[in-house]
Amino acid sequence: MNTEAGALLEIQDLEVVFHLEEGPLKAVDGAMLTVKTERVLGLVGESGCGKSVTAKSILRLVPQPPGEIVAGKAIFQGQDLLKIPRDRLRKEYRGKQISMIFQDPMTSLNPVFSVGDQLAEVFTTHRGMGKKEALEASAEILERVGIPSAHRRIRDYPHQFSGGMRQRVMIAMALACAPKFLIADEPTTALDVTIQAQILELMKELQREMRSAILLITHNLGVVAEMAHEVAVMYAGQIVESCPVEEFFDNPRHPYSIGLLRSFPGMVPKGERILSIPGSIPDMLNPPPGCRFHPRCQEAMPRCRRESPPDRMAGDNHHVRCWLHV
């Protein structure tokens, strides 16, 4: 495994707040992430822990208001994406160098425009192509992602495609400009199990071919094992552990990571009980003091209730945020 790869994207101390009627909600609280060139980083965590908000922040897609990126950096090839003018972000990065695939292919394609029209927009926007040329390019890329009779199907509308086919269209759209970095927000969660494997296989193949890096958001550890080179675990708006993927499965440090692994059916040896993590994620309007995880942690110490643990190294490339490892 090559650990020498340079950082393509570094998220530093990201803080995102949603200003709600009930008060400010800190969805992301000091998140740190590094995605390396041509590598896949799996970002795991329960629903509502801030994974999607972190991902959307990179392209500044967090709805504002009510959302607001209050602090932090997202440095992509030396450029802080959170600081550059919006117009530059749109023209040079969104859909060109950085693309995004969304969770639900049933809702992420616009129902009233043909698939070809929606694909062609990427080419007309970023490649300066005319409509006809862009449609031709669209058909080619659809063919590449495995849609049969692509030249005919570019005239069809999203409702004429199955879920798996729509996700292929989304992948085609994301990869149209051969981006250096792809954000995939639970790309297979909404799909049938058999289709999931096909989509993952396609993404893996294209990732190798286009040499893109991927930030893969998922709560499926099987997908992480299959796809990722590195793993980051998010809990209640914070990254609590990050390390290479083998290290994560062999030697997890944070009690939450250990809990996740024990509660995932595919990871538990046959005959052993699957253990769930007691409790549920905290109310983000009133997060617990100290370590966010302490109310659910079986190894919680008095200190955990008072002070938030710092981010520490627990080995080569292994970050963990827990008082047990300070």
Binding site: L59, L61, Y93, S99, F102, D104, E121, T125, M173
Partner: peptide, 13 residues
Amino acid sequence: QDYIDAARAKGLS
């Protein structure tokens, strides 16, 4: 809707 986010993510004006 998601497709509006998707349209923005594509880099459309």
